[in-house]
Amino acid sequence: MSLETMPDIGMGTFRLTGDLCREAVRSALSLGYRHIDTAQFYANEAEVGDGITASGIPRRDVWVTTKVWHDRLRASDLIGSLQDSLERLKTDHLDLTLIHWPSPNDEVPMAEYLGALRDAQKEGLTRFVGVSNFTNAQLDNARVILGDTPLLTNQVEVHPFLSNKAVIRHCQQQGIRVTGYMPLAVGRVMDDETLIDIGRRHNASPAQIAIAWVAQQGVVPIPSSTRPEHQKSNLDALRIELSVDEIDAIDKLNRNERIASPDFAPAWD
């Protein structure tokens, strides 16, 4: 089997390091995940590569995503940074490479780093390209710059307390898939009464309900977990079918509670 499209759920690795990261990746793949998400900034690409190797799953059957940090966006630096990532990940190509954040204050022009990203794709370093944490206006600008080179995804924060509907809708109208990070709002979903109540109806945890809600919007959730039972639970969440009324109830939990918003973040939609 060879993956031609991004799997519907991924294993996030933010804040995972060392042996914990290696084992979490190996475990996730053994349970059936086929999509592993990392980033240069996470400083764990080597451990992710070790986990993929230790899983015994053929490389062609694992979708590997990494992201270029904003200190490596210069055209003279971006391709070299990806070659470093490939070495750490112990692979000869990436399935998807994202620009992790738009260049803060446009210090590096978007045309420069997206042009370098397109060159990386042409050189075979990555099969697909995309962006992360881009606003709708930035996404439109990126599409113009890239022309015939399609953006596969915009990876943004999505969970019941930050529904990000405007960005999801805009991306999907352009044929761009949304990847949703922090779908469990760093565990905060576990205490929400609405999610608990809906979970009871489905014999499911609030975490599973949150992931199902993300997935039913056509968004690819990438929850992070180190415990095999939680990894399996997250994977099983894709089987849950929420009703229209249940989705509406979860939609009403939105309070624009953004967790990832560093001082260099763009002006959010």
Rank of each mutant, 00 (worst) to 15 (best):
L86W: 13
R26P: 03
T53I: 15
E23N: 15
Y113H: 04
L151P: 07
D84A: 09
P223S: 11
F161P: 03
N234A: 08
S233G: 07
T179R: 03
N105Q: 09
E241W: 05
E257T: 01
A215R: 10
C171L: 05
S243H: 06
A185G: 02
D19G: 00
T226V: 15
N254P: 09
G10D: 07
Q173S: 13
N256D: 12
D197Y: 06
L114V: 07
D95N: 15
I168C: 08
A24G: 05
W213Q: 12
I36E: 04
D245F: 07
N141P: 00
I240G: 08
D191R: 14
G51Q: 13
Q231Y: 11
P223G: 07
L184V: 12
I176W: 05
R60V: 13
R169C: 01
A24Q: 05
A142C: 03
K67S: 02
A75I: 02
K252V: 01
G130Y: 09
I211G: 10
E157Y: 14
E87L: 11
D263L: 00
H170Y: 13
V244G: 11
V108S: 00
I198C: 01
I259R: 05
I222N: 04
V158F: 01
L3N: 06
D140L: 13
R74W: 12
F128Q: 07
E87N: 14
D37R: 15
H93P: 03
M1D: 12
M190F: 13
A39E: 11
I247Y: 01
Y181Q: 05
L3V: 11
H170K: 08
D245T: 11
A210W: 06
I250T: 00
Q155N: 12
S81I: 09
F134W: 09
L31F: 12
D37E: 11
R169H: 09
N254E: 11
A249M: 13
A120G: 01
R127E: 01
A267D: 10
L73H: 05
G180N: 13
R72N: 12
I240Q: 11
S163V: 08
N254M: 12
Q174A: 14
M6Y: 01
I196G: 04
G80M: 08
G218I: 14
N256R: 03
I259P: 02
E246W: 08
I209H: 06
P7K: 06
L96K: 07
K67L: 09
